[in-house]
């Protein structure tokens, strides 16, 4: 059964991708890409990767689709037809690479097999000892935040870098002489505020979305979720607000100049946990030394760094959205 669902989803993915390849209308292509992400989130779900599914749904189908749409609003929605010479070289390159991969695939451990090396070398310790060493029942959280907490710091670094990069290039709220631009006169008419159903539904949704984000933030230890997902969900709540009520009101609630501090704050919060543990005699990001009891230390450490991740991600996503959509005003 599992296999069947999985295969069906995969085939749907292939169909979607081919549709995207052939489409000239980018708008639909981007929507299909969102659909593609949603489908893959389903596959992740089927393959037991609940955290990944959660993230892919929030990021791939949600935030990044919105980024695309915001960009398309500026650059136009259609693409020119390609000329034939363009297709040959890529096709050849792709076929060669694909052939190499298929060649390699014959030696791969079969899908789902128990004795694959991937499951038998490093992972057993996580599965067996992490409840006693780290604590959280969600092993993904304990690996993410503690065993490989350093990687996650790097991940926050990536998000932060993207923020700085986008900010450097587009700059939310700083465009033209550094003052926030006044709202265009027709901002009321242009926003979707007029659409009653949309407004009512979203008014209903926004508050629960934000609360759900907080739930995901603090519940990451026990179930799927964590700072990253929470941040993205929080950001989508705000973005929803901006979409319905217009970007200017949203920027009144979250002034971009103030918001620009938060990615750094979250990042610092994360890194400072590590610095504190160094000061208490442990290694960088060794939460065990934070308080007297190592297990408690791990718990507090993970909570704080997840908070740092959440703050950074939420602030970054909102900022990037502001930056992109401001340009189309």
């Amino acid at each position: 059964m599992e296999f069947l669902i999985n295969s069906l989803l995969l085939l749907m993915l292939v169909a979607t991708v081919f549709a995207i390849v052939r489409l000239k209308r980018l708008m639909i292509g981007v929507m299909l890409m969102g659909f593609f992400s949603l489908l893959s989130a389903n596959i992740f779900m089927v393959l037991d990767a609940v955290d990944v599914a959660f993230t892919e749904a929030a990021v791939g189908a949600g935030v990044s689709t919105i980024f695309f749409l915001a960009a398309l609003a500026i650059v136009g929605r259609t693409s020119k037809p390609q000329n034939a010479t363009r297709t040959f070289v890529p096709l050849a390159a792709v076929i060669i690479t694909g052939a190499l991969l298929v060649y390699a695939s014959f030696d791969m451990p079969y899908f789902g097999s128990h004795d694959a090396p991937a499951h038998n070398h490093v992972v057993p310790r996580y599965l067996n000892d992490s409840p006693n060493e780290v604590g959280p029942p969600n092993i993904v959280t304990s690996v993410l935040a503690s065993y490989r907490g350093y990687d996650t710091l790097g991940e926050v670094g990536v998000v932060f870098t993207a923020f700085i990069g986008v900010f450097l290039l587009l700059g939310a709220g700083t465009r033209k002489s550094g003052v926030e631009r006044p709202a265009p006169p027709n901002v009321q008419a242009e926003s979707m505020r007029q659409k009653v159903v949309l407004r009512e539904v979203s008014d209903l949704l926004i508050a629960p979305v934000l609360i759900f984000a907080l739930y995901v933030q603090w519940h990451g230890d026990f179930g799927p979720g964590g700072g990253f997902q929470a941040g993205v969900i929080f950001a989508s709540g705000v973005i929803l607000y901006a979409l319905i009520y217009g970007i200017v009101p949203a920027q009144k609630v979250f002034p971009p100049r103030k918001l620009a501090y938060f990615p750094g704050i979250g990042f610092l919060l994360y890194a400072l946990v590590g610095v504190v543990s160094m000061m208490r005699g442990g290694n960088f990001l060794d939460y065990g030394v934070l308080v007297h009891d190592p297990l408690h230390g791990q718990h507090y450490g993970i909570l704080i760094i997840e908070l740092g991740v959440g703050i950074t991600v939420a602030a970054v996503m909102i900022n990037i959205f502001f930056s992109l959509s401001e340009r189309s005003l």
Binding site: D151, G154, V158, A162, I164, G165, L168
Partner: peptide, 28 residues
């Protein structure tokens, strides 16, 4: 980060941080 790490995946993470910042720097 790339230089000091002994973890293959960690290389990828820091490689991306450095790449993203490089793209931004060049684009200026």
């Amino acid at each position: 980060g790339i230089t000091i790490t002994a973890d293959a995946f960690n290389v990828f993470v820091f490689l991306e941080v450095s790449s993203l910042s490089t793209y931004a720097l060049i684009a200026r």
